[in-house]
Write a protein that binds this DNA or RNA. Structure first.
Length: 486
RNA sequence: GUCCCCGUCGUCUAGCCUGGCCAAGGACACCGGCCUUUCACGCCGGCGACACGGGUUCAAAUCCCGUCGGGGACACCA
């Protein structure tokens, strides 16, 4: 537990699915911790469950981490002094530790079959006894073993749990005490010879020189087991820090699909910016002070540390993510914002006809800070298509009195504007309004509804200029006849 | 059931270690107002919490005990 050593931390997902929000938060905390302390951030793939692990998941995880900007100093694709970083590729590296455990009497072979184990568990449950392994094969003699093996039985290897208390000094939770007797002799090697997570994970942590293990609180009950393995091996374990859970609702449930999107990739596809997600995620369990809410990655690297991580679980609040996202989108300069928004416009089929880069940037500028997600850009469809309806509420409120007459007046004025630029258009409309002695709003809003179908949105002159003279007159004619027909 | 963790506004949290500065601060959301050609932004204001019960103390959100509530883990999953 040499805390004066250079920090080495890891994120060790199992590739059984996409990168989950909770996993991303864990990865982020590890990454920030490493960066803050000038240490090394390692990505390791804990895929000892070969049945559930897929290459696709692995690629998805890399991709999501790269998108978030969580680059790893050692790990798959980049290599490193402890390569390979994929557990199933680490061969029989674990074997010598198993042998040592066996030789020192800290582990033993168990010949119970899964069926027998299952029965014991069911029985224990019925009798309301602890459901852990009762230690049946713990005291087998050499002769017993030979007999069992002669029957053709294969064996798993279990760790022999000693007596006494296990004291965990957690960087987040402080001191947590476990009684060894409440743990059972758990399996560290399957009957087919492959090692299990609780074993490989801590062995790799040691092999790879991790100074800290920062992971979700859902791993807390694994920790005493791993500590015991270290103890049996006579090795100093890394420092632990258990992060509070990310919850899905105020009911305290673990975040799941029921509460909305749970994968990092989904948020990317929904139009969230990585910097917004990072900022949001970091505040789930970590705070800096009683004021600051918005942090750039650089600031986080400077400010993040484990001592300001809280203990209680936090609910994923989409509203707050949206607010942050809106903030970061507004932060983007015009060109970057246009770039960011293009894929979403394409996806919606709005960029079919050629639009000039200039037009696009003017459009994005007109939309301004009205976006909470990049995908929100598609709600401004009337800039791209004539296929829109008049919002009934907008119609009711703004097409009152003699709307057709009002619009006709505006149409005539606009038709007379030669150069359809902002200044002349604006001047013409102002002049018309003054001449007619009507209030601005009573001319502007009906016009807005006619051009966009809506009562809100970007500046009206922006809309007019962006649409162009032809479109504007066309839509005015359409609105006028619509009004007359209804 | 057993073991472990957690418990401040609806939500994220500051404060808790080192009791008094807290008739509990900020942020999101919500509500109202201002700004404005609309919407949004922004600004101003409002609503709103120490789970409960004991104890210690001159004084408790802060320390102690208990209760209740929530969660996690109890696999030849990770």
């Amino acid at each position: 537990m040499a805390t004066d050593q250079p920090v080495r931390v890891r994120f060790a997902p199992s590739p059984t699915g996409f990168l989950h929000i909770g996993g991303a938060r864990t990865a982020l905390f590890n990454w920030l911790f490493a960066k803050h302390h000038g240490g090394t951030f390692i990505l390791r793939i804990d895929d000892t469950d070969e049945a559930r692990s897929t290459d696709e998941s692995m690629r998805g995880i890399y991709e999501s981490m790269e998108w978030l900007g969580l680059d790893w100093d050692e790990g798959p694709r980049v290599g490193g002094p402890h390569a390979p970083y994929i557990q199933t590729e680490r061969g029989d590296l674990y074997r010598k530790y198993v042998q040592q455990l066996l030789d020192t009497g800290n582990a033993y072979r168990c010949y119970c079959t899964p069926d027998e184990l299952d029965q014991m568990r069911t029985q224990a449950r019925l009798e309301k006894r602890p459901q852990g392994y009762p230690g049946k094969c713990r005291h087998l003699t050499e002769a017993d073993r030979e007999e069992l093996e002669a029957e053709g039985r294969t064996s798993t290897i279990r760790l022999k749990i000693p007596e006494g208390a296990i004291i965990l000094r957690d960087l987040v939770l402080d001191v947590v005490k476990f009684e060894a007797e409440t743990l059972d002799d758990f399996i560290i090697v399957r009957s087919n010879g492959s090692p299990l997570y609780n074993f490989t994970s801590i062995i790799d942590d040691i092999e790879m020189g991790m100074t800290h293990v920062i992971r979700g609180a859902d791993h807390l009950s694994n920790t005493p087991k791993q500590l015991l393995i270290c103890q049996a091996l006579g090795i100093d374990p890394p420092q632990c820090a258990h992060l509070p859970m990310v919850l899905g609702s105020s009911k305290g449930e673990k975040l799941s699909k029921r509460h909305g999107a749970t994968s990092v990739g989904q948020y990317r596809d929904d139009g969230y910016l990585p910097e917004a997600l990072i900022n949001f995620l970091v505040r789930l369990g970590w705070s800096y002070d009683d004021k600051e809410e918005i942090f750039s990655v650089a600031e986080l690297i400077e400010k993040f540390d484990l001592d300001r991580v809280g203990k209680s679980g936090s609910v994923f609040d989409l509203k707050k993510l949206q607010w942050l996202n809106g903030h970061y989108i507004a932060q983007l300069d015009l060109s970057a914002r246009a770039d960011a928004v293009i894929p979403f416009l394409q996806e919606a089929g709005f960029l079919g006809e050629t639009r000039s880069r200039t037009w696009l940037e003017q459009f994005v500028a007109a939309v301004g800070d009205r976006l909470e997600t990049l995908a929100d850009i598609t709600s401004y469809s009337y800039f791209f298509t004539d296929d829109f309806d008049y919002d009934p509420k907008a119609v009711k409120k703004w097409w009152k009195g003699d709307p057709a007459g009002t619009l006709q007046g505006l149409r005539d004025v606009l038709a007379a504007v030669e150069v359809f630029d902002m200044e002349p258009v604006e001047a013409a409309i102002w002049a018309h309004i003054e001449a007619k002695e009507i209030s601005r709003i009573k001319a502007m809003q009906p016009l807005r509804v006619a051009l966009s179908g809506e009562a809100g949105g970007p500046g009206l002159f922006d809309i007019i200029v962006l649409l162009g003279k032809e479109k504007v007159l066309e839509r005015l004619d359409r609105a006028i006849s619509h009004i007359q027909e209804n």
